[in-house]
Nucleic acid binder design. Sequence first.
DNA 1: AAATGTAATTGAACAGTGTTTAATAATCCA
DNA 2: TGGATTATTAAACACTGTTCAATTACATTT
Lengths: 205, 205
Amino acid sequence: MGVAERKLREKEELKDLILKAAKELFIENGIEKTSIRNIADKIEYSPGIIYHYFQDKNEIFHALHSLGFQEMRKRMQILSAIADPMSRLRAMGKIYIQFAMENTDMYDLMFIKEAPIEHLENRKTECWDEGNGTFQLLRMTVKECMAKGHFEGHSLEPLSFMIWSTVHGMCSLFIRGRVTVLEMSEVDQIVENGYQSFLRIIDRL
Amino acid sequence: MGVAERKLREKEELKDLILKAAKELFIENGIEKTSIRNIADKIEYSPGIIYHYFQDKNEIFHALHSLGFQEMRKRMQILSAIADPMSRLRAMGKIYIQFAMENTDMYDLMFIKEAPIEHLENRKTECWDEGNGTFQLLRMTVKECMAKGHFEGHSLEPLSFMIWSTVHGMCSLFIRGRVTVLEMSEVDQIVENGYQSFLRIIDRL
DNA sequence: AAATGTAATTGAACAGTGTTTAATAATCCA
DNA sequence: TGGATTATTAAACACTGTTCAATTACATTT
């Protein structure tokens, strides 16, 4: 029975090899400049082989975007050590922003690009698990804040969405080159400053 | 001398024709499915001709994105009738969101896609005038609010950026299909609800 | 060890993309 | 009408994602 197992393992190995090559090319050149032929060249296989391991290009980038969420979750783990929900909420935003600024292309793939979402839409049944998990973390934290008397008069779902939108908005405007309109010497700090402004508001609720 | 003028006018006419065709195809099929050959087919010219009127595809979509800002500015005009800056700020966000939801592809081009910004980057000198103009409107309104005693302890630039980010964040998460994580019956209303949550916060500052 | 069946892999093709360029057609001016 | 200028085209280039028949490699059975 060892043969079938080895075969399966080898198959997984090649799949990982494709993914690894794709990730390297993607991080270096972005999604648009990462072609199937590029990936095939890098692993020294013919382009056609990739379609025996992935349904299409979108599936590859969906897999890559999942790796991004894995990394983000890892960073979020230290949050469990913060007892006060308001402090935790603040730290969560900080980690989120830091991740986005340090991995702009990965963030792009996770929250802006259509590739990974298009893949989900084609494979009907399933939904955006990665996004769900991460948003659930935010939702629960906001819920705890509300339980402690914060955010009076607000509903959980719209408020959580709004908080997410604020940090995402800042990151995505930065990543997609829309922050040139701002009168700032250090454009790299605008997101940090914007977040400070946001915290000042949130804190008083 | 009328000849040169007519020539110039004819040249402008063909340029407009290209733009008009590009816009129709873009609105109908999105940017990815609008190819140079598509446009050429629609105006019944050869593909090559387009490069005598536009430097590249990005320039076409930059021109289109400018049309989008024209439309947005038009919608924003009624704001001058609102004397109270806080009311004006609220109305501005409403118009912004409404524009985004009614013209998702155009909004995408204006604030998310890289095409129009890439065109600016290639033509070094100039900057993002369209974005500048629109943001200036927000900045001035926020400034008036501050002059009336609102937003104490905040700086103009980061606060304005944060406000923009919040509405942009909601719109772009919606447009790029990331709002499936929300537990809502009517997903179309999530942006509206999120904005209400935002206003409730802003109002008390 | 040889033959067979199965799975992995390839290479070529298809239909499309943006872009450049040499050749052609149309137009204007003297 | 002839010559210069301009507008327009067709063809090519170097790509893209994707499919598929043919080939190679390999495990199992005879």
